[in-house]
C-alpha cells in the first residue's frame, strides 16, 4: 500500500523547497506545501518524480483552525504510486494558484472546489459555479453553511394551506427526536 514517495525522495524535496513539510497518514504520506510554492512543487512532482496524473482535487473546511485545506491526490501512471499534497489556506480569503496549465483535468475540479468551498483559483480560465446554479449564494461544503430560508417557506409550503400528508411524516420525525 505505502508506495508513493520514499524517504529519500521526501528528504530531497524538503531540502529543495524549504517550507515543505511531510506527515505520514494511514494510506500515504502527505506533503504540506506553502501556497506560494505550490506550482513549483507540483511541476517538480510531475516532471521529476513521475506523478503525471492528477487523481483528485478537493478541499476540507476546518473552522477550528480557521483554515481551508486544499487537498491534491497525485498518481503516477502507469505504476499507480500515489501521494497527497495539501495546502493550508486562510478561511477568510482562500486563494490558490490554478493548476490548469499543468493538468487540464484541474479545470472542472477547481471549479467544483470554488463552487462548493469558495476557494479562488488564480489564473483559472473560467472560474464560475459548476454544480450549483449561477445565482446561488454561499458555498455548501463550508461547515457553517446553512440553507438560505426561502421567503415564506414553512412546513406547510408557505401558501396558507396545510398539507396533511406531510404532517404525519414531520411529527413522526419529531417524536423520534430527530431534526
Amino acid at each position: 500500500m505505502r508506495e508513493g514517495l520514499n524517504v529519500k525522495d521526501l528528504e530531497k524535496l524538503k531540502e529543495r523547497f524549504p517550507g515543505v513539510e511531510v506527515t505520514e497518514g494511514i494510506d500515504m504520506s502527505t506533503l504540506w506545501v506553502p501556497v506560494g510554492r505550490l506550482v513549483e512543487v507540483m511541476q517538480v512532482l510531475k516532471e521529476d518524480y513521475g506523478f503525471n496524473f492528477l487523481a483528485d482535487l478537493t478541499g476540507v473546511d476546518v473552522p477550528a483552525e480557521e483554515a481551508i485545506i486544499l487537498v491534491y491526490h497525485l498518481m503516477s501512471v502507469p505504476s499507480a504510486r500515489e501521494t497527497r499534497v495539501k495546502v493550508k489556506l486562510p478561511r477568510s480569503e482562500p486563494r490558490a494558484p490554478s493548476l490548469v496549465s499543468l493538468w487540464p483535468a484541474a479545470e472542472v475540479q477547481e471549479r467544483e472546489a470554488f463552487d462548493l468551498l469558495g476557494i479562488i483559483f488564480e489564473g483559472h480560465p473560467n472560474l464560475k459555479r459548476i454544480l450549483c446554479p449561477d445565482d446561488f449564494e454561499g458555498h455548501p461544503l463550508r461547515k457553517d453553511f446553512t440553507l438560505p430560508k426561502e421567503a415564506g417557506w414553512d412546513r406547510n409550503g408557505g401558501d396558507g394551506r396545510s398539507y396533511p400528508q406531510t404532517e404525519g411524516f414531520c411529527q413522526g420525525r419529531a417524536e423520534r427526536g430527530e431534526s
Partner: peptide, 29 residues
Amino acid sequence: ILGFYVVSDGSSKPYRIHIHSPSFVNLGA
C-alpha cells in the same frame, strides 16, 4: 477510477467525504 476521500474526526459521522467521480472528469474532456 472512482475515488473516495474520507476524513474522520473520530466521531460516528464522517467529517468530510469527497467523491472523485470518473464521469465528472471524463465529461470535462
